[in-house]
Design a protein around this nucleic acid. Structure first.
Lengths: 224, 224
DNA sequence: ACCTGAACACCGTTCAAGT
DNA sequence: ACCTGAACACCGTTCAAGT
């Protein structure tokens, strides 16, 4: 080996992975809004500018944090008597993982390169659609319907929680009073506009897509 | 007329609606990231603090801007030979409206009280599901599947555009090389992981949901 | 009563200067 | 070569002071 390390390891041995790990923990604990490059540096006990020697910008760093969180997805083996049930359970498991770290969710929403990073989900999703005969481009399209449906609904989760029906005044107040003349159907259904149950709506909609994929499949399974 | 305007009209007659309109225009033109309370005040030719006499905080103001943009949704009369086609065209029209003002999209993503503000879409959506027999809570659930599916996919639109397959290096590079041993199915399908066509994927998935809603309907229509 | 200027406590990022 | 301190150009928001 060459000369001994007379040179102090850069930034006290500050490895990019360590920065990403600490940033992940801070965001997970305090939220994305709280997080700043200066607070990260303080947590690392380092000059605020040192982080910029490893990452070009805050956006770059956040992208790395998001990819780290997504790559760590590990899904359970899929169980279920029917294909439909297994497909549903994959979507639910992926959603649960994304929701597990609620403060990271806002980050995933803006992360580039999202789907490729969720390796486990891609692998299992593709295997699933192959089971019922989807191949090549058709398999990827079928997988993508399920995958992006799940991601989209998951990102909406916070919107459901702040739904008008949950607020004082309810939905009628929120939209400034619904005019029964211009929107009669809406007005008639107002009593049914209770708070959205995000879990229920997700499962309901996922079942529709799953049934559609199974019904159109090249090799539909029996006992569905 | 009474005394001449010795008293300057408050903030030069600054009405909350005017503030919201100018904020909307600035965000639409320059983007949400560019926008700030100070720049808004400059555009209004007013002291930065004057806006705070009308809105408690930046978040409050942005919420008002988002609701203004959503309340203005006007959808075309639905045409189409079959129920499925009309349901699809409603979803596409809503998505087109949300995508029309791309810089506002980021705002909608965080807006509270989203669905109630899209009056036109709610009215037409409920009318549509009633056509095939959905009533009361079942009608609202069916509508919500369509509505939130559409909103979720629309919010994802920017993610599709930054998909790895579009980047130099492609998807394989983006996830650090896909291991054929641990993710064989993914590896085998890599050639099919081209850029996501957001429009195509949306229409494809919407058709699955629409068909599911029609198939499960209390009064399924003929000639579908 | 209504508005403003200055100030507070922050940001992300650049860059000349230190070791 | 590697790191840092000070500085730049901003933020959202508070509040005492003006008219």
């Amino acid at each position: 080996m060459p000369s001994p390390p007379t040179v102090a390891t850069p930034a006290a041995g500050l490895h990019p992975d360590d920065i990403v790990e600490v940033a992940h923990r801070l965001i997970s604990t305090h939220g994305l809004e709280w997080f700043s490059m200066r607070k990260l540096a303080a947590a690392l006990d380092v000059n605020p500018m040192t982080v910029y020697l490893r990452f070009d910008s805050k956006d770059d760093l956040l992208d790395a944090v998001a990819r780290r969180g997504l790559a760590s997805v590990e899904l359970p083996e899929l169980t279920g008597a029917t294909w439909d049930e297994r497909a549903l359970s994959l979507c639910v498991a992926l959603r649960d993982h994304l929701l597990a770290d609620r403060n990271l969710l806002a980050l995933y929403a803006t992360a580039n390169r999202l789907s490729g990073a969720v390796l486990q989900a891609v692998e299992q999703g593709l295997r699933l659609v192959e089971e019922i005969g989807y191949r090549d481009d058709a398999a990827v399209l079928a997988f993508r319907s399920l995958f992006w449906h799940t991601v989209g609904f998951t990102l909406l989760h916070n919107s459901f929680e702040s739904f008008p029906a949950d607020q004082p005044g309810g939905i009628d107040d929120a939209v400034g009073g619904i005019d029964a003349e211009t929107h009669p159907t809406f007005a008639r259904h107002l009593p049914s506009f209770t708070a959205v149950d995000g879990d229920e709506l997700f499962v309901h909609t996922t079942r529709l897509i799953v049934a559609g994929l199974a019904g159109n499949a090249p090799e539909p399974q029996e006992h569905r």
